[in-house]
Nucleic acid binder design. Sequence first.
DNA 1: TCGGTTGTGTACCAACCGGTCCATTTTTTC
DNA 2: GAAAAAATGGACCGGTTGGTACACAACCGA
Lengths: 200, 200
Amino acid sequence: MRKTAKKKASVEQLPAVTRDPEASVQDILAVATEEFAINGLSGARVDQIAERTRTSKRMIYYYFKGKEGLYQAVLEKAYQDIRALEEKAKLLDMEPRAAMRKLIELTFDYDETHPMFISLVSVENIHQAKHLTNLTSIKDMNQSVIRTLTSILERGRKEGVFRSDLDPVDVHLLISAFCFFRVSNRHTFGAIFDRDLSDP
Amino acid sequence: MRKTAKKKASVEQLPAVTRDPEASVQDILAVATEEFAINGLSGARVDQIAERTRTSKRMIYYYFKGKEGLYQAVLEKAYQDIRALEEKAKLLDMEPRAAMRKLIELTFDYDETHPMFISLVSVENIHQAKHLTNLTSIKDMNQSVIRTLTSILERGRKEGVFRSDLDPVDVHLLISAFCFFRVSNRHTFGAIFDRDLSDP
DNA sequence: TCGGTTGTGTACCAACCGGTCCATTTTTTC
DNA sequence: GAAAAAATGGACCGGTTGGTACACAACCGA
């Protein structure tokens, strides 16, 4: 009843309601990313996400089918973003040691400035990555880091600046481990030791 | 807590023990640890925990006041267990390099064999360690690792086998990072790269 | 301008879930 | 041995939450 009254009364200024599907999708994704990162998959509330969006809960189910669908979309976008960044830096054109240093800096800085991504990955790990396995696109996407690293190590080996027995996946693991842990565990670490994991 | 034997000598013979409060508590804690580790704080269901226990939901609220209380108790016990283990190994009696190696092995093996602990810490980090801050006991408890590490580094420095500018907290961070990440991120890592993070 | 498709808002529901009430039995205290 | 306290069980409840039915407006091609 309140609906009809409002509509009737404001007929002349209706055109202000512009439709923008793509913006709605992105808006929902952005909000959902935060909510899932902060509250986890089961902790996040669809109503809360909807409320923070400029659209309604109805749209979430319209575009993403359900809570899990939205979560998967969020996860996919998060991985897309980080790999796109790594791709952008032209590491293959650089001198091996400089490239390696740059890659590490890139990883370090990205993790440092994107705690949401870190949380999301942690959440997904708690759920044993069972949503990630549905996203075949991600697998392909992430192979690029390994290819890059392989190239860097190979060239470095030829120039005699890197050891010859380095497995690129191991190297990636080591780099990720330190950069990721610093951010993912900053809260428990900070609570236990009086150390704010910032720049050291 | 067999302290119940403190009241009378005639009670030391406990025949058909139909009731065992302490066992109930431990039972609940054990089940809850798994459930929280697998499903997270909000994902875990009190009913599910109760069902897997040999007691009822009523008991959870009786002993732990509520879901959050149970979660905190689980967290506290988890930290107690790992630190107790570190304490047991007499690292202070060992030669510095051997002690360091032993400490790393201990951490590596514990993380490897206790994925539940790793998950729990991850869960707590997602919640920004806000439950951990209530547990002042944990803070004190964990200082022991740093003390141990400080001693090892100090003795190593005197013997000239370690660098002199090593911060024990930094060293602990580095050790934890690698051991922890290997386990905490094994699922996403395994889903993306075809690598089962086992013994390398 | 008209009909179908897409995008959007509102109201609502059924299941679920954390938490509690009441009753009862075992253990401890006096 | 009675009363108090501790421990336990089971039914139950009220709010929350993911999800949906319905209505309808905006967009677009013909």
